[in-house]
Design a protein around this nucleic acid. Structure first.
Lengths: 183, 183
DNA sequence: TATAAACATGTATATATTGACATGTATATA
DNA sequence: TATATACATGTCAATATATACATGTTTATA
């Protein structure tokens, strides 16, 4: 479905960027719903350039270091907007290795099962703490923008990520409680 | 990471199955956290057989139709249990095309944005209704098994799936409300 | 008894993704 | 000024996944 294509177009549409910049954004701002390695990004940039959806100019960093600053073309923008406007059917539920393991865990000793859930719980607690920290640091710039803006979208998806993590945590706690009762 | 391998081993460990059976189970019981097409399953079964982790016997269905009934070997079970016992670091957050689109949506007219969220909301409401129906139909067999059992695991992951969907729905509703305020 | 739906098993091709390999520059700091 | 870290761009090989192609049997039902 070329989702990476649109993720890149969407970012470059916001602001001209290098492949390196894209890589950073994917693994920071977008990491809660999309990500990609640089080994995927650079070939895709090449492809999008060949397709005429983006162009680049070479910018010098220091004396010698050349970086490619990509911007979106008119065709690229049309393509992006057409994709954005399309309403999709529901995606398949995301895969989740922990849930898969949990599904089969019954063959393990009760204490090992609890260890799994406790480990997952502490990792998720740490993660949600980081997300909430981001939210409180950025909340001023984000929510107060009372019009629909990039910052407003940042805020909405960050809120969604926090809600998702908190629910995962609630589930883990309920599982731990029920396993305690059952064993 | 060969997750499909362990998904298959886990299922065959519960009960001997054909590739066709596995395909059905993936797209019914496991669909809320794992799935695979038959075009992935059959080659993997071949590979696992070659690796000595499973074996099959040919069973006749009617007069001519041969099906392969797979069972797990001792080595397969050891491999499965070793995987089950391993505690993993947190997986990267699952990708989500709708959230990605939402992140870039700000360039669209407010009404189109709302249409996206409303469509997603009604699709998710339908989905959670189905999940809750499954839960109420199967709840008797599931929860009442007061010991840790396959049915108990089924119950736990189904509950998790319902919680996840409900949170997605809450997020969508909050987004719709906030977009209403902002536009 | 014709027919559709479900059962049953594969392969082929294209795309997506990961992790390793490979190279070199610029900048901050010890 | 040595050194580590971040900046910057690529390729390659292996794995994973999706979609289409391909074939044949059995069972329920109209």
């Amino acid at each position: 479905m070329r989702t990476l294509k649109y993720a890149i177009l969407g970012l470059i549409n916001r602001e001209a960027m290098t492949g390196y910049d894209l890589s950073k954004v994917f693994n920071k701002d977008l990491v809660n719903f999309w990500y990609a390695n640089h080994s995927q990004i650079y070939p895709e940039l090449k492809k999008l350039t060949a397709e005429g959806l983006i162009t680049y100019e070479i910018v010098l960093q220091g004396e010698k270091l050349e970086k490619k600053l990509y911007s979106i073309t008119d065709i690229g923008q049309q393509d992006l907007f057409a994709w954005l406007a399309t309403i999709d059917p529901l995606e398949p539920t995301p895969k989740d290795i922990f849930r898969l393991k949990a599904f089969f865990m019954e063959s393990l000793p009760a204490q090992t099962i609890l260890d799994h859930f406790e480990s997952q719980l502490s990792q998720r607690l740490e993660k949600v703490a980081k997300l909430e920290n981001t939210m409180s640091t950025q909340a001023c710039n984000l929510k107060k923008s009372s019009k629909i803006s990039p910052e407003f979208c940042d805020y909405l998806v960050l809120k969604g990520a926090i809600m998702r993590e908190k629910t995962y945590i609630s589930w883990l706690k309920e599982c731990i409680a029920e396993i305690g009762e059952s064993s």
